[in-house]
Amino acid sequence: MNIIIVGGGKEIHFLTKSFISKGYNVTIINDNKEDSKRLAKTHEKAVVVNGDGTKPYVLEDAGAAYCHMIIALTPKDPDNLVICQISDKMFKIKKKFAIVNDPKNVKVFKKLGVDTVISTASIISSLIEQRVSVDDITNLMPIEAGKVAMMEIEVKEDYPILNNELKDISLPKDAIISCILRKSEAVIPRGDTGIEKGDKLIILSLPKVQSEVLKVIRGRID
């Protein structure tokens, strides 16, 4: 698979390294000469193109016509938008990822036809917020830029749902216990599966019902 990454910064090093280790061909476009040199030195297997990635001829030089995936990672949102649009319209690149710096632009990008928009700021802030408010939740992951939330809760002995069967727990409509991790074993629960102490519940839910879910499971809100 051929991947083009446009931008600079710390993330690009990490992404390049991980893509190369998976055997993908990585081309980096960076508009700063010094940074480009450094990138080329650090990642011997990657191709580095020095130029403005929002210009069609630079993308062409980077082999956009034979590329399967492009990641727009510049610090300027308008640049990321233009990179994705040119990739789509001129080079017909199938997968386009845009990072937005201002979370409000996620909506704007989607309306303008860029499907996969990632807002690092909102992902990080939602992760921190949820971790801070509830410490029994050991793992939390937003899916599809926060449209669905996945959380892992360990059942303590004071939880009201303990020893209940799944069908007797009245979770909100937009939430489901999708998996139970019991003593290093994964159980896909049915209606008659009981909840035991120490179970880790993997819960999928819409973000808006998350606090309601927590209330049902833990019997309290704090």
């Binding site: 929002t54 300027k76 949102d77 308008p78 938008l81 233009v82 704007v108 309306k111 303008l112």
Partner: peptide, 15 residues
């Protein structure tokens, strides 16, 4: 900045 121009223009047109 061309890209800013184009982004604002698209927001105005499409949204």
């Amino acid at each position: 900045d061309d890209n800013t121009n184009v982004m604002v223009a698209q927001i105005a047109k499409s949204i």
